[in-house]
Design a protein around this nucleic acid. Structure first.
Lengths: 229, 229
DNA sequence: ATTAATAAGTGTAAAAAATACATTTATTAA
DNA sequence: TTAATAAATGTATTTTTTACACTTATTAAT
């Protein structure tokens, strides 16, 4: 099947690793699993897997994410390759890291038991397998860049959310407090949100209006580019 | 050598492809070569090669770039992976694309003859091998994002350059005319440039002062981040 | 020596965007 | 009816960005 000239070239293992981010209303968290094979059996690690010959790299990442979370249609982007020769003591494995943004409640307690997985705050990460710590650091940085100009962050929130939840998310990602009036004005002026009649009554007597993200308006806006933060 | 569990996994070919950008004083160009193996023998393509077991992915990209240009210490960054199953009819090859920024005069006529290579303007690209056209498009977009906040673009210019050459570079990357006064003010206010006594006399009787990029000042600035354009 | 030609170099006013900041409002539990 | 609590809202100030045109230095031609 392969061209003659290709046969003499080195073949190696290609893996994907998924940095899965969630938002608990207060902090950004990453979902980690206890590794179930050697080397590094039992260590906390990112969810990963090998790319098969019959699937694209993206499909492999999607498959690995689905295997852990059961989720499909998840926001996911490539972070980049990690290709040091000795990064994996088990063999020559190049890994392509992907980051995914999921709604934290979509990942149930049951799944956490089943996979020996756990959400960790980004500044309380355990010792991690191989170069997975570096992957998470880079993904965190990439997430910041991403949400500054793209509405990716919305996928970390429930589909209906209050303005204060949205602000809380940006504050968590940028690790700094923002001014409520300025934030509200800016985000509403973008015209990406649709205000609902409905109110969220969990956190106050008055209740805060719920909003949804309006993908239509985003698609129009995104052509000429814009800045969220 | 490899762990037992890894052995049953699919092994595949991993390649690197280099998008090499240059600036001729007027337009951004990409350096392409005539492919010297099947499949696609004789087609215009990016310079590429397979990642060996004994080298990191980054080292492979560096090696491939050096093989074509003879250059070392070149500004190079990973663009991302291209991993569709059938992207290369010769076999299952995942490619990691890198973009490099070089001074166009560092690449001699002699090398162009030797490698059957040629500089192409980005809007006059020939038909390209596999997904290399898409790689170049993505790299062009990435270059824009990059130079808006990082001084990477300077590596496309000679080490001494005039303000109008620098402006010309940004105009080429963004494909739009900019105001000379505003551009000059902004770029000088950043404090990244050192003005020399020397003048460039090629393009005017008066002559334009030459500047050099001051890496020291950049390193200080880069911690808190800044915006060039 | 004077003039003509050419690109280099420079400043200011207006508009837009970002920031700093505090009070009123709606609701419910006591 | 009152107290408590978070939600909602506007304005003045500062900073940044944009728009815009004339003077200067130099040399080649006369």
């Amino acid at each position: 099947m392969a061209t003659e000239q290709y046969k003499k070239e080195d073949h190696l293992l290609l893996a994907v690793d998924c940095i899965i981010f969630g938002f608990d209303g207060n902090r950004i968290k990453a979902l980690l699993v206890k590794r179930n094979l050697e080397p590094g059996l039992g260590k906390w690690s990112l969810m990963g897997g090998f790319v098969k010959k019959t699937e694209s790299v993206k499909d492999a990442a999607t498959r690995v994410l689905n295997l852990l979370t059961g989720l499909t249609d998840v926001y996911m982007e490539e972070l980049g390759s990690f290709g040091e020769v000795n990064r994996d003591p088990g063999g020559r494995v190049v890994s392509i890291a992907w980051y995914a943004l999921i709604k934290i409640n979509d990942y149930s307690e049951a799944l956490m038991k089943e996979h020996q997985s756990k959400w960790f705050e980004l500044d309380h990460l355990p010792v991690l397998l191989f170069d997975h710590g570096e992957m998470i650091l880079q993904a965190k940085e990439r997430l910041r860049e991403k949400v500054s100009a793209h509405p990716a962050g919305f996928t970390l929130l429930p589909s209906k959310f209050t303005l204060q939840q949205l602000q809380g998310l940006y504050e968590a990602i940028y690790e700094k407090k923002m001014d409520k009036r300025n934030f509200t004005r800016r985000v509403l002026e973008l015209g990406l949100l649709k205000k609902l009649e409905e109110k969220e009554k969990g956190t106050s007597r008055k209740g805060a209006y719920l909003y949804v993200f309006d993908k239509n308006k985003y698609d129009k806006l995104s052509k000429k580019g814009f800045r969220i933060i």
